[in-house]
Nucleic acid binder design. Structure first.
Lengths: 209, 209
DNA sequence: CAAGGTCGATACTACTCGGTATCCAATACT
DNA sequence: AGTATTGGATACCGAGTAGTATCGACCTTG
């Protein structure tokens, strides 16, 4: 006979997915656990059976989702080994920025929330350092692979990268349509400087040949 | 006889100032009106006598403070008519970024909050457009005054400007010490390109003479 | 200087939330 | 199959919230 009862892992997933959706729509603080449970087709008891507290749920959710996002972005970057890397990367970022407006909003609230909770603050800081390091590594890899020098230390550039994409996501969410799609690409090109412009032109010529 | 009772305006100010302080420390959602009132040396009755609701208080507070900040930033930029404008501006921004970490955190929470309240959303959007337009105007003025071309349309550059400073403020708040002080200046120089580099060197020579 | 009005304190209501205790049913084990 | 265990539903509690009614003190005005 087929099992009539879902496994613990399945229930946990349901709760996490529902939480992300409802938190994203109504905000973390404004959403009660009852609402989360209802969205998952369960009750508060199920939530407390899987998570020790609301904070625990939020923390787990943010950690997990952040991890997924890093991986997705890295895959997207790794996938195209082409020459017009900055353009490609910018395109990927813009696409994700639009699609994951919800995520950026959640992150903003979590950022505000974290400042009053040492545990969340620590988690956020650790995760952010990891993200920065990963981005920096990717930048080095790309620059070496294509043979051009980065305009500043990779660590610093990673910060700029993240700040810019995050900031533009916020601007774009506040005023949809007010942020041109290709703006991020243009800025990145300016920052990268002449080296990449030459590189891009060379790639364009090569693809024509 | 001197008045023993403060005017309505005075009380209102007290509430608003206290609200900014307490909201900044503990977060908007996490702060009760009783706490706000207590911080102002008053009671909840005083708050409700001056504001129709908590939302009303928050809205007024953000609107007012945002206005003040625009003015302050503009004044700071206007004040120095020197040649090394980008460096100066970056310095001002960095200083304000550090000092007003509280403000950025409040804005982040408000940004998340606004998405679920059409009224706040509209207010935030309108205010943001105003800020962008003001920054764009300042950029045009500076570039014309110094006789160099902006690397992209002023409106777009304003967005980049805001996204970058806002994003870096967040990064800096998450991981204090992880963001070099001069990073913003370096990025702005890269974005501005050779024109400003030349300009800056010219200014340096001039100041030595 | 009295009358009327305003402002803010006090006390209270109605409600929601996070979290807990308990209990029942479905599962795993022997 | 019978038993132990686990997962989730239900009911409940204490705390704390926004918001309201009321009342007294103070200011203003005729």
């Amino acid at each position: 006979m087929a099992r009539t009862r879902p496994t613990r892992a399945e229930t946990r997933r349901q709760v996490l997915d529902a939480a992300f959706e409802v938190f994203g729509q109504r905000g973390i603080a404004a959403t009660s656990l009852t609402e989360v449970a209802a969205a998952a087709g369960l009750t508060k008891g199920a939530v407390y059976s899987n998570f020790d507290s609301k904070d625990e749920l939020v923390l787990t959710l943010m950690e997990e989702h952040a991890g997924h996002r890093i991986q997705a972005s890295l895959d997207a970057v790794d996938a195209d080994g082409g020459a017009d890397v900055f353009g490609q990367v910018a395109a990927v970022l813009v696409r994700e920025m639009r699609a994951d407006a919800v995520w950026h909003r959640l992150l903003a609230e979590y950022f505000a929330l974290a400042h009053h909770d040492p545990r969340k603050q620590k988690a956020l800081q650790g995760r952010r350092r990891e993200v920065r390091a990963t981005v920096a590594r990717a930048l080095v890899q790309v620059s070496e692979g294509l043979g051009f020098a980065l305009p500043m230390p990779a660590d610093d550039l990673a910060i700029v990268f993240l700040a810019l994409s995050n900031g533009m996501a916020v601007e774009s969410d506040i005023d949809p349509g007010g942020v041109p799609d290709d703006l991020l690409a243009r800025v990145l090109t300016l920052i990268a400087g002449d080296a990449v412009v030459a590189l891009r032109e060379a790639a364009a010529r090569a693809s024509v040949d």
